[in-house]
């Protein structure tokens, strides 16, 4: 039998779930392809495809989807709504699958999806099983594959935390970057910024790399009604790492309203810390941000008496 190919767009939740998704589909015997890292072209294609008003992260995502159309049997776009009450994701993640189906409906491309809505008692595991049913896969095998995937992801998270604590021990200015994983890890958005910091002798630390289980509770110290899981994790990261870093960069994509709200609150509540609010857009990318980063580092060095 011909092996089925599943395409995964390298955007948005890919960066949070890549280990789960890739392991899962491989374990199930699919061939997995992931779209290439973001370039200016991805941004241009994504912008042309989508409504002007969407966020850059979404435009990049559809740029990635578009690059997979026609190259795989299925493109995988899950819908993840929440992990329970007050544990939500951006409403955008409710819409992605249906947006893609509507945008590419003339292309003949097929899509795969599952929906997680734990508030309504639909867990990730159940939705994975549901998805497997539509593909006629035996439940037992799917359960085993899912277990392996979850395990692999736990390993990855441990590794991320491990690397983070190593970075915290390094010499040099430590700059905490508060951003979604799809912002900080993206080749076009966050990469140039972390690269620049490294080149300037600073050590980038990720606010979103935290122990996820305790993040929600911890974040309540900073904001009691923020219901977005990733922002909760970022806030708990700020609280956990603020004593060990020299400055914070709040990094988001243009024009993300959700991050704008949370970052505004952070700016108003986290005292006594140099903070830089950076918003990356699709036309200029990170060009021009270097001067702002440079002067931010200068200010911190000056404060520390190193200049």
């Amino acid at each position: 039998m011909e092996q089925i190919t599943v395409g995964i767009p390298r955007g948005l939740l890919y960066f949070r779930y890549r280990t789960v998704w890739k392991t899962l589909f491989k374990e199930l015997g699919f061939k997995v392809i992931v779209s290439e890292p973001t370039t200016q072209e991805t941004a241009d294609i994504g912008s042309a495809l989508t409504v002007d008003e969407g966020c850059l992260a979404q435009k990049l995502f559809f740029g990635h989807v578009s690059s997979l159309v026609g190259r795989c049997d299925y493109i995988f776009i899950p819908r993840i709504r929440n992990y329970g009450k007050s544990r939500e994701l951006c409403v955008r993640f409710m819409a992605l699958y249906d947006m893609a189906v509507n945008m590419f409906r003339g292309s003949g491309q097929k899509f795969l999806t599952y929906s997680v809505d734990e508030w309504k008692s639909v867990s990730e595991k159940e939705s994975v099983l549901e998805l497997a049913k539509t593909l006629d896969l035996p439940t037992k095998r799917v359960k085993a594959a899912y277990k392996t995937a979850v395990k692999a992801d736990e390993e990855r998270q441990k590794e991320l935390l491990q690397k983070q604590s190593e970075r915290l021990k390094r010499n040099g200015l430590k700059i905490l970057i508060a951003a979604h994983s799809y912002v900080i890890e993206d080749n076009f958005v966050g990469k140039p910024i972390t690269e620049y910091l490294k080149k300037s002798g600073a050590v980038p630390i990720r606010a979103d790399v935290v122990d996820r289980d305790s993040a929600f509770k911890k974040s309540l110290e900073l904001s009691s009604t923020c219901k977005w899981t990733v922002n909760q994790e970022i806030m708990s990261g700020i609280l956990s790492y603020e004593d060990r870093v020299d400055g914070i960069i709040l990094l988001s994509t243009f024009p993300c309203g959700q991050d704008a709200m949370v970052n505004e609150l952070i700016l108003r509540r986290v005292g006594d810390m140099p903070m830089l609010n950076l918003v990356v857009d699709g036309q200029s990318g990170t060009a021009g941000l270097e001067t702002r980063l440079e002067s931010f580092l200068d200010i911190i060095r000056f404060k520390k008496g190193a200049l």
Partner: peptide
């Protein structure tokens, strides 16, 4: 900047 209403636009266009 209304996220959900931006996101139904591809459906409305269809």
């Amino acid at each position: 900047n209304c996220t959900p209403e931006i996101d139904i636009m591809p459906v409305l266009q269809n």
